[in-house]
């Protein structure tokens, strides 16, 4: 379970990215966070694994305080939280498998990492992660030779290799075309349903948010302004979260009705 208690983040420039947010995410939920860019979606997600430290308040993951954790403790907490990024964040100049095995770093002794020698068990786990996102045939291809959609699935496999309890996805489809976006979102949905992993995704396409989010959290200017089930949200709710009327740019399928 993830718990935010009066969490606030103020960046050095004085921007209040998160203002007094309190909420709970129980295990196994598929949560989508929506809001305009700059509303604090990324900050909220990065506060969960401590990539962005809170200015005040607390974040707890499975009753462990992320805010108070020292470096070693934080690494242990992070090892159980997979993360997927908008820009994929793969090492382009190495193989897909090496990228996936970055998910095992916490459980790998440093000397092994330095030598780049992985155990057969680790390689097996990496391969299984790639099989789950149906891209195992690319294991020994250089990451830079894959398409955007394939790279994002490698990103998902890397997160899965951590054997995580939670997966954070920060705008996972923002760099992808519409059909590929659905492939990636379906992968995340399957991971949530079949493995029971909590999945928290930032999205700015509202149709995707409704389609894949069991629960939707709305942020506006760093404040929590909506928290409800996907079925509850309609155009009115989204306009309220966005603080303006909706446009064609807010949906992935431009012709689709909201």
């Amino acid at each position: 379970m993830i718990r935010f208690e009066h969490a606030s983040v103020t960046y050095p420039g004085g921007v209040h990215a998160l203002k007094d947010v309190s909420l709970e995410i129980p295990d196994g939920q598929m949560v989508v966070i929506v809001g305009l860019s700059g509303a604090g979606k990324s900050t909220l997600i990065r506060a969960i694994n401590g990539l962005v430290p809170l200015t005040s308040g607390r974040v707890l993951v499975d009753d462990e305080d992320v805010t108070a954790a020292d470096r070693k403790h934080l690494r242990r907490i992070r090892s159980r939280i997979g993360m997927i990024f908008q820009g994929f964040n793969l090492v382009n100049r190495t193989t897909v498998l090496n990228n996936v095995l970055m998910g095992r770093l916490y459980h790998t002794p440093t000397w092994r990492t330095i030598l780049g020698r992985y155990t057969p068990e680790q390689i097996d786990l990496g391969m299984r992660s790639l099989e789950r996102v149906e891209i195992v045939e690319k294991a020994y291809t250089r990451a830079s030779n894959l398409s955007g959609g394939q790279q994002q699935r490698v990103g998902i496999a890397r997160a899965l290799a951590q054997d995580p309890r939670i997966i954070l996805a920060d705008e996972p489809v923002a760099s992808l075309d519409p059909p590929t976006s659905h492939v990636v979102m379906r992968d995340l949905q399957r991971i949530n349903r079949e493995l029971g992993i909590t999945v928290i995704t930032n999205l700015h396409f509202l149709d995707l948010a409704r389609q894949y989010g069991d629960r939707i959290i709305g942020l506006r200017a760093g404040e929590l302004v909506f928290d409800g089930s996907g079925a509850q949200v309609d155009e009115k709710v989204f306009e309220d979260i966005y603080g303006r009327s909706l446009t064609a740019d807010d949906v992935l399928e431009k012709r689709a009705e909201l």
Partner: peptide, 10 residues
């Protein structure tokens, strides 16, 4: 980006 990914993996 890859450094952030490594950090996030612990």
């Amino acid at each position: 980006g890859p450094l952030e990914a490594a950090d996030a993996a612990g």
